[in-house]
């Protein structure tokens, strides 16, 4: 048995739920988390994202300097971003199918910030209702 931990974008929650059902596993646990990824070091990627965020600002209600300060704070890695953490426990032979489904459902054109997936071993599972152990409990 394996535990699949996926950290994904908040707005991809329902797409992920659909993808999981399509992949044949309906059960999951989701938590709201905050996090940050690897520090982005490529100057082009940062400049592009900064221009995009600055365009979103409404000049009538915010000072340009303050907007810039805020946007820089978003990009220099000092902030945590809201993300959704999915935990799925699956049988060994289903893991690659689920990982593929998660990757397909969560990929965006922004690339940076799409998330990470970790696969951890689980030694045992118990269904509370019946007391079954192991893979039967899944």
């Amino acid at each position: 048995m394996k535990e699949i931990i996926a950290v994904i974008r908040m707005n991809k929650t329902s797409a992920t739920k659909k993808a999981l059902v399509a992949a044949g596993v309906a059960g999951f646990t989701a938590i709201k988390v905050q996090g940050r990824g690897k520090l982005v070091e490529s100057p082009e990627a940062i400049a592009g994202r900064k221009a995009k965020l600055m365009d979103l600002a409404i000049d009538d209600i915010s000072e340009p300097e303050e907007t810039e300060k805020l946007v820089t704070g978003f990009l220099d890695g000092s902030r945590l971003f809201p993300r959704r953490l999915f935990k799925i426990v699956a049988k060994d032979d289903e893991v690659s199918k689920i990982v593929d489904a998660l990757i397909q459902a969560n990929r965006t054109e922004n690339r940076l910030g799409d998330g990470k997936i970790f696969v951890l071993p689980i030694y045992d599972a118990v269904r509370v209702r019946t007391g079954e152990y192991g893979e039967e409990a899944l």
Binding site: V99, I103, N106, R111, K116, V119, L120, P121
Partner: peptide, 12 residues
């Protein structure tokens, strides 16, 4: 705890 595999979603 041990992690067996890790994937980056954007690049796979």
């Amino acid at each position: 705890s041990p992690v067996e595999e890790a994937y980056t979603i954007s690049s796979g």
